[in-house]
């Protein structure tokens, strides 16, 4: 690990010019400390925000919930309000990592965790995300876990979070604080970016910007279902995951939200699939059409070709489950 200056931050007001592009915020550390051991992250300064008074979950206006950035993944998944009204979020959190990691990992940190692409982690291999312009080992290498949507020739890495998939489906937002004290809000859907020709940038955050709160609006109507497909049944990243919130009226889709994990550089809100389903009868045929609409532009790179039919089948299965029609809608 490279040497760094350590500074404990007592209050957000103490964060100023020291929060530059050469500094990193440290909270739970479950991803950052590991990346520093690999010398993939080499901050000159660590600003320890873990003692800030942001580990609270508060009721907001209009049935919303305000989640402090330091709320642990365990605390958020276990919160009675979340389990009852946002079960998609609780389920996604519990599908990720282990109890030890969830006890330490924070809400803001989970959003900002970095890809688990093998080539990003292997400093002996080229990686455009780690060293822009160096090339991509995954493009023509081992790419079983890589992106099928929204990738670029520079980078086919995926965002690894389960929690973020649920948040994108639930229209959650983040509140950001800049080092000059100014604040802005952003949907989680717009926090992460596609790689394009700047794969080193995972998010649209400016240097020194801090996620302070996550806003969960009142949940939309309907059943919430999260399904994660992975190589083993616990403690593995998603090959494909799907979060769905589906409401029916007289057998017709009255409201639907869909997000994919494990398929892109960001949690993927499936708006084409949603549009294809809205107002249509909740049939197996409609579910398949919706999945095909979203995946029409999907592209495999050899090792991950299987993810395209896997994503299609998983979405259809989750929609079937959410519609409460298991085994019925096979026409």
């Amino acid at each position: 690990m490279r040497p760094f200056d350590y500074q404990r931050i007592g209050a957000v007001e103490e964060i100023g010019a020291q929060a530059s592009d050469r500094a990193s915020f440290l909270a739970g550390g479950t991803n950052l400390v590991d990346l520093m051991k690999h010398e993939i992250e080499t901050p000159e300064q660590l600003l320890d925000i873990s003692r800030l008074d942001l580990a609270r979950i508060e009721d907001g206006e209009d049935g919303s919930l305000q989640v402090g950035t330091l709320v642990t993944n365990t605390a958020l998944a276990s919160d009675a309000r979340v389990r009852q009204r946002w079960p998609l979020l609780s389920a996604a959190l519990l599908a990720g990592a282990t109890a030890q990691l969830r006890n330490r990992a924070t809400t803001g940190g989970n959003l900002l965790q970095r890809t688990r692409c093998y080539y990003f982690y292997d400093t002996a291999r080229p990686c455009n995300k780690r060293n822009p312009g160096e090339g991509c080992g995954a493009f023509s290498g081992h790419n079983r876990i890589h992106a099928i949507l929204g990738a670029s020739e520079q980078c086919i890495a995926t965002h690894p979070s389960d929690m973020a998939v649920a948040m994108v489906a639930l229209d959650a937002g983040v509140r950001l604080r800049a080092p000059d004290g100014s604040e802005r809000e952003l949907p989680v859907e717009e926090l992460h970016r596609l790689p394009g020709d700047e794969p080193q940038r995972d998010t649209v955050l400016a240097p020194g910007e801090l996620i302070t709160w996550v806003h969960l609006p009142a949940p939309p109507p309907g059943r919430q279902v999260y399904r994660k497909v992975r190589d083993r049944s616990s403690y593995a990243f998603a090959l494909v995951s799907v979060g769905v919130i589906l409401a029916l009226k007289d057998g017709t889709v009255s409201s639907v939200r869909i997000a994919f994990g494990g398929v892109a550089h960001k949690p993927w809100r499936a708006r084409k699939a949603e549009a294809a389903l809205q107002g249509r009868p909740a049939t197996e045929e409609a579910f398949l059409k919706a999945a095909n609409a979203e995946l029409a532009d999907a592209k495999g790179y050899g090792g991950n070709d299987f993810k395209i039919p896997l994503a299609r089948r998983t979405l259809v299965a989750v929609l079937r489950d959410a519609a409460g029609k298991t085994g019925e809608a096979r026409a």
Partner: peptide, 26 residues
């Protein structure tokens, strides 16, 4: 030493964590 095996599990303020991913100074 990378939070994957759990051999370093200890209780920090009563909760289990991977001690390999916690900086002592924290």
């Amino acid at each position: 030493d990378h939070g994957q095996c759990g051999a370093c599990t200890v209780l920090l303020d009563g909760r289990r964590v991977n001690a390999c991913l916690v900086l002592a100074v924290q």
